[in-house]
């Protein structure tokens, strides 16, 4: 099984330790992992702004980097959704279709593809609130959605339950968007910040010590809000818990 690892651009630059955890965790499962060196970004920045023309070359580069893998894995639900659902700025060649079909977010990959049944090296005896990135939740279906009448499920929770000590707390608005929204966070700064503040207040009131998510982008925004508001919340990517990095 040849696995290509993609590290999102913001993570590459701002949260490299999450990238490291991802690589280290995947290495535990005896996979043939490669990090293509010429990778940059998934192109979501341009695509979500409506700039298909400007996104095309970035999408093409992504496909060039990852066409030769059986699976493409990345620690981001949002970027996965971009590849799977929105890689439409370029011609849909066999390579493009292959890449779109075989790109997985880390949570999906662990939960659905290699079906990890234990993380014996990890323990995390804290109160944890899960934050679902909206693309991961409603695009990839990481979990059941509060708006629909459907049975409850949560892939991130399933994984975290396999870690010793994790205690879950519930939010008043479990899957309300935190207001990051990519370029939304700066183009619509006022609303974005307000949504972020409300989100971290909800997390604070829930009694959470840690907020955990499969997406660092939302967490950067929430962390920025929480720090400014001097709330004692800590933000971690799920892979950091699963790999036992925080004990």
């Amino acid at each position: 099984m040849k696995v290509g690892l993609f590290i999102p651009c913001y993570m590459d630059a701002l949260e490299p330790e999450v990238g490291v955890s991802t690589l280290k965790l995947l290495e535990r499962f005896n996979l043939d992992i490669t990090y293509p060196f010429d990778q940059t970004c998934c192109g979501q920045l341009m695509t979500n702004t409506g700039c298909q023309k400007e996104a095309a070359a970035t999408e093409a580069l992504f496909v060039k980097n990852f066409a030769y893998f059986d699976y493409i894995v990345m620690p981001s639900g949002s970027c996965t959704h971009q590849v799977r659902a929105n890689f439409t700025a370029i011609e849909q060649t066999e390579d493009v279709k292959h890449v779109r079909r075989n790109t997985y977010d880390l949570v999906e990959f662990l939960h659905d593809i290699i079906r990890v049944d234990a993380f014996p090296w990890a323990s995390f005896p804290y109160k944890v609130a899960i934050h679902y990135n909206c693309n991961a939740l409603r695009g990839l279906r990481h979990a059941s959605m509060s708006e629909l009448r459907e049975p409850y499920f949560s892939k991130p929770k399933d994984l975290l339950k396999k870690v010793r000590g994790v205690e879950f707390v519930d939010l008043e608005r479990p899957d309300e968007c935190c207001g990051f929204g990519g370029t939304f966070s700066v183009f619509e700064e006022g609303v974005s910040a307000k949504m972020g503040q409300d989100k971290v207040i909800d997390q604070y009131k829930s009694g959470a010590e840690y907020v955990v998510s499969a997406d660092s982008s939302c967490l950067m925004h929430q962390k920025g809000c929480a720090q400014r508001m001097k709330l004692p919340l800590k933000y971690v990517h799920i892979v950091q818990i699963l790999n036992g990095d925080l004990q």
């Binding site: 590290i7 701002l14 490299p16 060196f37 910040a193 962390k223 920025g224 809000c225 720090q227 400014r228």
Partner: peptide, 16 residues
């Protein structure tokens, strides 16, 4: 970004 949010910490090196 920073008007109402703290900036992300800039690490020493990139993942790359």
């Amino acid at each position: 970004w920073g008007r109402q949010r703290d900036l992300p910490f800039t690490p020493k090196e990139t993942f790359h």
